[in-house]
Design a protein around this nucleic acid. Sequence first.
DNA 1: GACACGAGTGCAACCGCTTGCATTAATGGG
DNA 2: CCCATTAATGCAAGCGGTTGCACTCGTGTC
Lengths: 344, 344
Amino acid sequence: MAVTIRDVARACGVHISTVSRTFSAPHLVNPNTRSRVLACAEQLGYRPNRAARALITGRTYNIGLIVADIANPFFPPLIKAAEAQARKHDHHIFVADTNEDAALEEEVVRALAKQVDGVLLVSPRMSNALIEQLSREVPMVVVNRQVAGIPAVVMDVARGARTAIEHLTALGHHRLALVAGPRGSWTSREIRRSASATARTAGAELTIIGPNPPTEVGGLTVAEDVLRAGATAVLAYNDLMAIGLIEGLLAAGAEVPRDVSVVGIDDIMLSRLTRPKLTTVATPTAAAGRAAVDMLLAHGDDRRTTAHVHLQTELVIRDSTGRGPGPHSPADPGDVNAPGGVAS
Amino acid sequence: MAVTIRDVARACGVHISTVSRTFSAPHLVNPNTRSRVLACAEQLGYRPNRAARALITGRTYNIGLIVADIANPFFPPLIKAAEAQARKHDHHIFVADTNEDAALEEEVVRALAKQVDGVLLVSPRMSNALIEQLSREVPMVVVNRQVAGIPAVVMDVARGARTAIEHLTALGHHRLALVAGPRGSWTSREIRRSASATARTAGAELTIIGPNPPTEVGGLTVAEDVLRAGATAVLAYNDLMAIGLIEGLLAAGAEVPRDVSVVGIDDIMLSRLTRPKLTTVATPTAAAGRAAVDMLLAHGDDRRTTAHVHLQTELVIRDSTGRGPGPHSPADPGDVNAPGGVAS
DNA sequence: GACACGAGTGCAACCGCTTGCATTAATGGG
DNA sequence: CCCATTAATGCAAGCGGTTGCACTCGTGTC
């Protein structure tokens, strides 16, 4: 059916190896022969079969991209950027969605391993140990996780969380809540660690709520916990949860930012469009996608690079955060909106 | 490096063909032998190389999924559903993003053709003729397009557009605008055709604005055109444009729905979360993704099915549409907020 | 004029796997 | 007890390419 290298060879009166070399080692074939072969190939509509080539060379020119949830708006910009970057280097991308399931992650990596040159594991939920093991079966770059000996692209969410907490305490909030992300998320742990430390330094109280599914519903359902904790400001694991949380707070009669300030993380497109517009920590997702692909493709060249790329985050202040009760006032700690006195 | 069928055969003391049959034709091998082979394979961590298998069988167990823009929130739910459905049938998915570029679509289909069992072309921008031609090189299912002789999944946007226009005229609007989508979009043409017919029937005026890029910015930039046309109600090609349009109208001093009613199409997640919440025509994107995969995989069985799957759409009325000036009243046509009667 | 050399091409093995056919052993019927 | 069947396995060709090696020519050198 399809036209093969043999058809071209026959049509052109040369041996198949010459046709092969015309495409994969042009300098080895006489310019005249070469152009003749190219003409035949073009005319027959010949396209090399990559799978067949991969069988010998071991290079598939495919990349696996594994994400927790394609429908989570955090991922599409990353996928898009990765796909564009990959195609720029003539690679194709397999996309797999693991539904936040660690076991599925493993299964998918294994299933893809043989037909890709490498795997991009984005925001993995599986254990570090398993990642290390899998990385021995197939080249791997991890995004949003630090694993010893494995190339990684990480966004500096720790710094982002610190900035966010500082923003909130500077606004006069001292009863804070952190709405954590899913179990197994390195990012969530980082945020938690950093937020806790920052809150402690600032002398603020931080209630941690979670783990939770990193979705709008996940945010919505913890609204009551937030209120019960008496928090006047919340940092959420991601924007989706922050938005859900705002909905939930509203449903419970609390307005944002009047009664509660909310900060998200990611700066997904949505965040600019909801009302109130969401204050959030912007993460460079597209850059991460590109960087991850670049690392994966470079990986082959000089072995054991194991570089880590750190990408900066940035607090984007919009309308979901406002003044808090002010510096610690012993008086009337129940009324979170009381204009507060001074402390330290 | 990797463990092959030969390693298993050697470890197990059988011929490679027996190992092969153990996996791809189990009924041909003795149950005892079979379990021995399986044990060896398991122990060595053997996984069949699909690319090698495909070389002989012609079946790759891969599917190509080509979309115009991964970052457009319309697509992720479709991609997610398609991926899940594909994996249910043990297939993997290549995702490619064409940036709304028809030429790139063609290139990507060709590049993918050899390593997939079929291609899902979602909301294509290329011509019907080209689609027909490409479909002779690789099995294809088209989503959101009708092409003679090619299996398709189409959402009934024509009916959606009609319902939307009827909704608006029933609210008393008679100067309408349609913000069209990108050139090459079948959906946009369908919407236009249906909206025009419906408006004519209802005796309403319909200004068509476009084509436009199907993005938030695309919607934002036509806000002035909408106002200049004197429209009090707008149907947009998709939600993203509707949301951009609302922003643009607001920036120009027109409130939604007080001054202008806006209806979107798609019902992306965003639409529930913006303020005002968007009235929109819900399209079953996830169902479309699943259906398309099913058609592609069934396609092989009984040739020339060329079935077309039609999926229904549904108007979801939220807060971006409100009463219009009412039945054609020569009096005070300037005050779009006059409490209007209802016609018919 | 013999020789070394490099450029260009052909030859054939092989990548990991499937599959039609041959071979062998076990089974049942007459 | 022999033969035809059937079940189970081995054999080897081949899928569409790549690549080390051998071969054939000019060409330049001494």
